[in-house]
Design a protein around this nucleic acid. Structure first.
Lengths: 130, 130
DNA sequence: CTTGACCTTCCAGGGACTGGAAAGCTTATA
DNA sequence: TATAAGCTTTCCAGTCCCTGGAAGGTCAAG
């Protein structure tokens, strides 16, 4: 399987696949006699695993840790759970920040006429020296 | 006012202040005879404006646009409001993504024992080939 | 034999900083 | 007066996660 076929199979670009290999996230594949990378079903599975973990917002370093746990038959599920719970915490933090931003912006936009006059509570608020 | 004093005054690091100048976000300040940057109250106000806009999640390019509108006495408040409303939309989108991740992770972690046994629905889900 | 679609490597950029090196300036202290 | 501490200057590199592009090698079809 060439890298293009793997890319089509997984929906991850060939560029990204090579990038993951370059940082040691995914193993170096075999090479065909012409030097082309040669992938198999294992590689499809690994890449899809990475893709799903990324989709849940894990960083590449966290994905690396998850991959290691996945491959370790003797892992403790507690280790996986800890990673996931920590990640949930982080996500909650980010949601909280975004909600606060949203609330402030909503208050400001409600008070802004939004016409062709220059006075604008949004700019005033950004400029105010509290 | 040296850059260090400005940094203390605004809570923005000297590094970041120089960076903002380097990308043309903030104007080049005067220089003292010894070559040190020389800032005044205007610069404090501009930097605090930038800081607040960043705190609301605006990108540096959006901050640049907001600064331009702020300085333009003949601006239309509609232009500011549009920027803010677009930004709210973006924030809502990001919140939605994060909530979806969080929900999935919560379902998975609930089903994971989190002990020293290896079986783990989190890894199983990441690995499943759906 | 050429065309087009692959593949290879390497280098660079983006967004928003942050760290560090090497050098110059200023102020306080020994 | 020497020196050390604490500023400042510039520039280069790294972070994170790719993505784009250049320059070249390979392969199948027409």
């Amino acid at each position: 399987m060439n890298i293009g076929a793997l890319a089509r199979e997984t929906g991850i670009s060939a560029k990204t696949i090579r990038y993951y290999e370059s940082i040691g996230l995914t193993p170096e594949p075999d090479r065909q006699p012409n030097g082309y990378r040669d992938y198999g079903d294992n590689d499809v599975a690994t890449l899809k695993f990475v893709q799903r973990a990324r989709g849940l917002g894990f960083s590449l370093e966290e994905v690396r840790a998850l991959l290691t746990l996945w491959r370790d038959q003797g892992r403790a599920s507690a280790d996986v759970k800890k990673l996931a719970l920590d990640h949930i915490q982080e996500i909650e933090g980010r949601i909280g920040e975004l909600m606060a931003m949203k609330r402030t912006l909503e208050h400001l936009t409600e008070r802004c006429h939004g016409d062709d006059r220059p006075d604008c509570p949004i700019l005033e608020d950004l400029a105010k020296s509290i």
